[in-house]
Design a protein around this nucleic acid. Structure first.
Lengths: 213, 213, 213, 213
DNA sequence: TATGAATGAGACTTCATTCAT
DNA sequence: AATGAATGAAGTCTCATTCAT
């Protein structure tokens, strides 16, 4: 294959190779799934040959696993963002969900990892564990903590504590799944939905003098 | 292969064959995805051979498409159930969502169709269209109608009309996706979550004298 | 591939396939060694394709092992022949060695198995065990028994008992190795050598009248 | 790769490289055969890389051929040793066979060259010629000369002259092949066998007093 | 109708060889 | 001189599809 950039030194190229390959692998696996992706397709994306891919990753399986690991890790760290939230529990929940939306439903990479988790979970259970540990668990844990705090402080209804975290998180999945299914064919305003969801759920969550619907 | 049931006549068997095969195909495709499923795996499930499958379906692709079509169609018809709802808009929405939950998130078959839509959508866009037409569109359309009616009648907040249908449907996606990802490994009480979700969103949706949180 | 014989029924063909393939595998492996033989070469010999070979043998390794096993087993059974020997110990030893010569050094198949044992013994230790069990052990065991008997009866020298079996068997290895190395390029009269060897070992090279050399 | 010996000068190292490589190649080819040996395996033995091997040998084939040539040549020169034999023909034959045993059956390197000759003879006929020219031909030629001389002088039987050289040499092949096949798994006392063989061939297995068997 | 032997295209993986550094 | 990244031909094995029985 032809040299793309003359300036890049061999050492630099070599240092970047694994990440480049992982990146290309992400694109291919996300687009076609594990089984339907050929190692050569991954290589072609970079203008290299399949042999070169095998220089860095011993098998297609490992390539997939490393790709998933890297893609999960390269995304913005939720925990950090979660730590910087301020305000009332309601405020913090809103902030948390918006962060979570941005990193999970609105971020193409994370969205595709969700697809891969669903599609390849049988063959790669660790991928699902990764996804859970990186995206789902932190959000739910933080939501649970905030909801409990809100209940304790009397800010939230007592009875809602049990399922509120799942309820709160659901619009994020909704938007993510929608986009995975319909790509650009049926566009939705994800942020507006998530905000409306927060708004509506919060109205219900917050203690009120009046009675229910 | 040995005859499984002696009583079934040849003609009966023959008449059922296509459906049996589609059923077996569903199981295999759901478990392994399109590319990783072998036509022989499908046949083995029925104790027949590859060749017989090709007697009824010309290619693996067609087998997948027919399987998807049949699996979508065999499920309970949402529209009928929707038509039988009675009561206030809130009541009918609650009823609708519970029906939708049962047929979408709580029904293994429909859940796996969601997985396949996400996993194979690139290769089989019609599958996605099917899924949308059969499960998503009817629910959203009915929700939209009910919300609009509720807004008109003053039962619901005006401003929430725009995104309420998506918000209301979210927990169903949430539960469906959760179960697809974690199977039995992280069980959730789907119905309770959906009900809590309805409860909380309704509290927010319903017109109230008091102010917001 | 074209049908070679119209008369052969499918079932007959199928029944013979494994042995045919093993036979072809023997020829290829013997000629080129394990690593240098392609499964396709084996198939081509029969006018079939590699896929067919994999219908009967799961891997090239198994093909080799089965081939070796079959080739060892298909050869004439030494033990039977050994049992039918009659006469003095010397007569029986002569008879035994001639049988052994015929089946080991003079039989192309067995000879090639010796080559494969030597060439592929590292990768296939069971092959060596097979060869030993089928060709070497029976001959040496019978020789040992006959020599012991001859020593007991006073027919043979006492002091020679220890190594006589190995000494007696030597010329067979000699002829076998020679033919493996030089094929037709340096022909030898194997039988004459083995007979001369028997003769000399029995009676001695040195002139009879006087004392030893 | 790290420098193995600090004291060795660059020039010295360079001068030795070809031989080092051939030595490493010998070990690898002997252990795995030509086709199963990777050039990189050879390099690794020396702590160098593939590329370096190609600096000295243009192809794997040439590497094998040069290795075989060098390994054959590096062994003790039979002809010299043969020339220094003294005594009766029987004595000289005994001496010759013991020398031949030491250099052929008892010397690991020569033994492995025999294996390679048998295993790779098809692909490398020159290897076989080398082996013959270096180890077999000199021994047989000397044996032939000695036997002829012994027959002429009346020391040996007339009738045995024709095949005696082959007969005399056979125990050496026997021991060599045995060791190649069974390595340490079935140890034999090679020298004792060769000596017993010489003894028996010279004097005969059969008791001396009477006539032949 | 059903079988399953056979095919052959195609995918993964290996490795001899090259060559820029 | 030495490296080792890169190539690409080649080999093992799989599997959708065909077709004679």
């Amino acid at each position: 294959m032809k040299r793309v950039e003359k300036k890049t030194s061999r050492a630099e190229r070599k240092a970047r190779r694994p990440d480049e390959i992982l990146e290309a692998a992400f694109e291919e696996f996300a687009a076609k799934g594990y089984a339907a992706t050929r190692v050569e397709d991954v290589a072609s994306r970079l203008g290299i040959t399949k042999g070169t891919v095998y220089l860095y990753f011993p098998t297609k399986e490992v390539l997939f696993q490393e790709m998933f690991r890297q893609a999960s890790t390269s995304s913005a760290d939720l925990s950090t963002a979660i730590g910087s939230l301020r305000g009332s529990c309601a405020d913090r929940i809103r902030g948390l969900l918006l962060i979570s939306y941005e990193s999970t439903a609105n971020d193409r990479k994370t969205r595709e990892l969700l697809r891969l988790s669903l599609a390849e979970g049988t063959r790669f259970p660790e991928a699902v564990d990764f996804y859970h540990g990186k995206f789902i668990a932190p959000t739910l844990a933080a939501l649970t903590a905030l909801v409990e705090q809100g209940v304790k402080s009397g800010e939230f209804r007592q009875d809602a504590a049990a399922h509120a975290p799942d309820v709160l998180a659901s619009s994020i999945f909704h938007v993510a799944v929608w986009r995975l299914m319909f790509a650009g064919r049926k566009p939705i305003d994800g942020k507006a939905i998530v905000e409306a969801h927060i708004d509506l759920v919060m109205s219900g969550l917050v203690q009120r003098s009046g009675r229910r619907y």
